[in-house]
């Protein structure tokens, strides 16, 4: 499978010459299978560029939302397939104890936040909503997808995508170190462990430096150090630090990578921070 990074930024779209390389668009990763199936992980502002990536319109697109924070859904309204009556769209997202996924998404896709109502889209019946809970498994085309609730404010799932022997774990907003003074504990007491175990590609929250994390405990994100420790714990083969803080520009992120490469030689996995437009062959 192939993972294409359309949006890598956390929290808020942060375009500008100083973020051009790592990217200013918020979370969105397209996963393409050899059979042509396309899964889209999160619908941040990067989603808008998916159309340009595809050679032909797809008959079906599956959008897998980790949660409904704005930086993960803002691109939805600007996704051309939403307005194409021929495209079947499946939206997957975490169940909540109160309202269904459709109702919660409608809060954003309705006035005054957005001019168009979901029900006013062409052939709205081609949209399917799937409320997912923890440890759910389903198949889409050649992909097997597994979910797990993970540590982040509000219902949030991570996804593991597998095809043949290749696997990708996607945990863009994840604070497994919350309340753990000497992170990590054993795997069975670590959020996201089962999902990410042995993944070929681990796309993981790396919003902060450890110094910054101290002022943001409980905000739902990880420091680079946590991402490293988590990757080592789960035995990932490649770590992709993701969900870059809006204040971290290209020069700062280059500096971080250089610093960690210096400080942590011989890690048992490779580290490639997410940059917008990057393509990873997985497996």
């Amino acid at each position: 499978m192939k993972a294409v990074f359309l949006g890598t930024r956390g929290s808020l779209a942060s375009p500008g010459p100083e973020t051009a390389r790592y990217g200013g668009n918020t979370s969105c990763v397209a996963v393409q299978g050899v059979g042509g199936t396309v899964l889209v992980l999160d619908a941040g502002t990067g989603l808008r560029r998916l159309g340009a990536l595809l050679s032909a319109p797809l008959p079906r697109v599956d959008l897998l939302l980790t949660h409904l924070h704005l930086d993960h859904i803002q691109g939805l309204g600007f996704f051309p397939a939403l307005y194409d009556p021929e495209v079947e769209i499946h939206l997957w997202g975490p169940a909540s104890a109160t309202q269904c996924l459709r109702t919660r998404l409608t809060r954003y896709l309705s006035p005054p936040l957005f001019p168009v109502h979901l029900r006013d889209l062409p052939r709205p019946e081609r949209l399917s909503f799937h409320d997912v809970v923890s440890s759910e498994e389903f198949s889409v085309g050649e992909f097997r997808v597994r979910t797990a609730f993970v540590c982040h404010p509000g219902p949030t799932v991570g996804y593991r995508i597998a095809a043949d022997s290749a696997s990708l774990a996607y945990l863009p907003d994840h604070e497994p170190a919350l309340g753990v003074p000497n992170f990590p504990l054993a795997g069975d007491w670590t959020s996201g462990f089962a999902l990410a175990r042995g993944a070929d590609l681990l796309v993981h929250d790396a919003q902060y430096t450890l110094e910054e994390y101290k002022d943001h405990v409980g905000w739902g994100h990880s420091a680079w150090e946590h991402a490293f420790a988590f990757a080592e714990l789960v035995g990932a083969k490649q770590l992709v630090p993701f969900h870059h803080d809006p204040a971290h520009d290209d020069a700062f992120l280059d500096g971080l990578l250089a610093r960690y490469s210096r400080e942590r030689p011989g890690l048992p996995f490779s580290v490639t921070p997410a940059t917008e437009g990057a393509v990873f062959e997985v497996g």
Binding site: S135, F149, V150, C151, W189
Partner: peptide, 8 residues
Amino acid sequence: QKEIELIL
């Protein structure tokens, strides 16, 4: 792995 609610 324990469920997230137990971990929290």
